[in-house]
Simulated assay, not measured.
Amino acid sequence: MMLLVVGATGTLGRQVVRRALDEGYPVRCLVRSFRRASFLREWGAELVLGDLCEPETLPPAFEGVTAVIDAATARATDSLSVRQVDWEGQVALIQAAKLAGVERFIFFSILDAEKYPDVPLMEIKHCTEQFLAESGLSYTVLRTAGFMQGLIGQYAIPILEKQAVWVTGETSPIAYIDTQDLAKFAVRALKVPETANRTFPVVGSRPWGAYEIIRLCERLSGQESKVSRMPLELLRAARKIARFFQWGWNQADRLAFTEVLATGKPLTAPMDETYQVFGIDPKELTTLEGYMQEYFSLIMKKLKEAEYEKEKAKEKAMKRKMKRSPFKKVEEPKP
């Protein structure tokens, strides 16, 4: 089975590639730049140039491909909009997969996407799910809530650097999942027939609120946080301003996601059926506490090593300075 991974350089996509290679699948990656994706080639994946927003570049990527795992999504810093990448690009990809006779198509979506038609990314994900279901392809949709990897920049690093941690009032608790675990479900779907033409929630063991995560980071780092509350109305105003400028459209669409978080409703789902169908033991998955503990253990060790090296360098500098001292011992005159 030749597997095509789309969005392979992203946080989730690279974990899909790593997992698939480890399980022995031949992997091809659709990439926009060989330079940025060179690490995938070093892992053992084949690279092919292509762009979701340029449909004419897609057919060569599908030569000999029997399955697709699609992890592509627009980044907030992209010049292209969410609509261009996550809707128009996805439609082009699904159509190309259909023409190529692909046997399986795995797609990542967002939990409860259908409940938020006013949030662009949620609405687009929901529409893509429907388009995929009606395409005639054998598909599996995996709906997730949030990645643990994103919590490092949001909470851990600011606390370590004694900077402000921004929260939006009483935000919705989220059942975050490690991208390595999500990749495990995606690759497993390829060989479990019962996952065909179905949608599954794939989330963490329990939802975590912002203040719970902050307290966890404080305990693991031994440092107090500086929490700053961001009024929801201010974020809404920032979104409206960003919509006035083309370069701000992606940021505006991402800011709209705060409307989901501001509801206070937990973003989670029961996982019993998912575990059973995929044949995965929940004990195999990473907990948020375990993930953060591993991160802080590693980073604190590195900080101690850096401090030790800094002290050694300081001692060496002092010794060199003493050797070069102009105050030499004066010999007493001989009688």
Rank of each mutant, 00 (worst) to 15 (best):
G101V: 02
L21P: 10
R219K: 14
L80M: 11
D181E: 00
L137D: 04
V187H: 08
L111N: 05
V91Q: 04
L232S: 07
E307V: 13
R229E: 09
L93I: 03
K304C: 15
F107N: 01
R18D: 11
G24P: 01
T66M: 12
W208V: 02
T77I: 15
M230V: 15
I106A: 03
M1V: 13
R236L: 14
C53S: 06
G10S: 02
S205D: 15
S225H: 09
E129Y: 00
P266M: 01
V65T: 05
E273C: 00
E56G: 13
V167F: 09
D253E: 10
E294G: 07
E129G: 01
E88P: 03
F105R: 00
F296Q: 10
G64A: 02
E56Y: 09
L111D: 02
E129F: 00
E294R: 14
R254T: 07
Y275M: 14
A242F: 06
R32G: 10
A76N: 15
E218K: 08
E123D: 14
R75Y: 10
P231D: 01
R104L: 02
K310D: 12
D78V: 03
P270D: 07
M2A: 15
V31C: 10
G13T: 08
F296S: 08
F278S: 02
A164F: 10
S172I: 12
I174Y: 05
A100L: 00
L99Q: 11
K98A: 07
K302M: 15
A37P: 11
I69W: 04
R35N: 13
L234V: 12
E331H: 13
K162T: 06
T168F: 14
Q90W: 07
A183T: 10
K302N: 15
G44N: 04
L58V: 05
E56Q: 10
